[in-house]
Every structure is written in C-alpha cells, then in structure tokens.
C-alpha cells in the first residue's frame, strides 16, 4: 500500500464507509473533523498530551492527533458520535462529570474502552488509563464516580 500524494481513501467510521480526500500527512483528527464533520473529537494539544481527541481504533483508545488518516485504513474507527446511549454517557450526565465539556468526548471514549476491555478494572488500571486525559474544569472526582458506576455494574 502506498499514498504518494493527495488522494481519496475509504475509512470505516462508526460503522459507515466514508471516503475522504487526504494528503498522506493528514492526521486522522483533522480528517474526521474537517472532512467527515465528526467534530466530537477535539483538538487541544495536538501533541498527544491531553486526550481530548481520543477515538477508538479496533476497540482501543487512540489519540487521533497522533495517527495519520491513511494509517486508519482497514481499521474500525469509533468516535463519540458512534456511541449511542452508552452507559458511560448516562453516567457522565448523572455525575456532572464535565463542565465546559471540551475534554468530555475523549474521556468518555477512553472510559468506554476501559469498561469493555477491563470490565473489572481495579483502581490501578483505572488510573493508568484515565491519566491519559486532561480535564481543566473538574477536580476529577465526578469522572471517577462515573467510571466506577459503570464498572461496578460489570462487577455485580
């Protein structure tokens, strides 16, 4: 496989085949937002430091600012727009786990992956995963309650 110049690629996003005109050096984040209109993943640091742009790639959380769009070919991408009434979304609403909401998509996606991959995650694993995301508004307690409420459902 090779891409030498701007060209059309096909991506599988939220269960739909979507095509996009990309440069090989275009980031998945920019293509999702600018071409596919999926603006739930947020640009904040574009350096992999904050997690606001987190999406799922084959079920695993990935910072879409650190992935080329062409790299995503053949993989299953899920963005926040692809979650519908996920338990984590309800939990974030119930627990007031966001204020400005800018980090929320990334946090929910990461939490969602965690709950699926490690449904019985202990505190150490939860911390390890969720330290990948920054929130500047909350003090993290509500986010902690939200993820615990979903994990405890799995545990019981």
């Amino acid at each position: 496989m090779k891409f030498l110049d701007t060209g059309t690629i096909e991506l599988l996003v939220n269960g739909e085949k979507r095509s996009a005109l990309v440069r090989p050096s275009d980031l998945l984040l920019d293509v999702l937002r600018d071409q596919l209109g999926l603006t739930g993943a947020k640009p904040s640091c574009k350096n992999g430091d904050c997690g606001a742009c987190t999406v799922l790639v084959d079920g695993w959380p990935v910072k879409s600012c650190l992935m080329l769009a062409v790299e995503a070919i053949g993989h299953e991408i899920i963005t926040i727009e692809g979650l519908q009434n996920a338990p984590l979304q309800q939990a974030f609403v119930d627990e007031f786990a966001f204020q400005c909401g800018y980090c929320t998509s990334g946090f929910i996606i990461n939490c969602h992956a965690l709950a699926r991959i490690h449904p019985k995650a202990d505190e150490a694993v939860i911390r390890e995963w969720l330290q990948s995301n920054l929130c500047r508004c909350t003090g993290y307690e509500e986010i902690s309650k939200a993820i615990h409420s979903v994990l405890s459902t799995h545990k019981s």
Binding site: G40, F92, F98, G101
Partner: peptide, 9 residues
C-alpha cells in the same frame, strides 16, 4: 446542554 456534551454534538 448535558446530552449535547456527552455525544459530541
């Protein structure tokens, strides 16, 4: 605006 914030909308 809660539900808009948790869905990326």
């Amino acid at each position: 605006e809660s539900w808009n914030k948790v869905t990326g909308a």
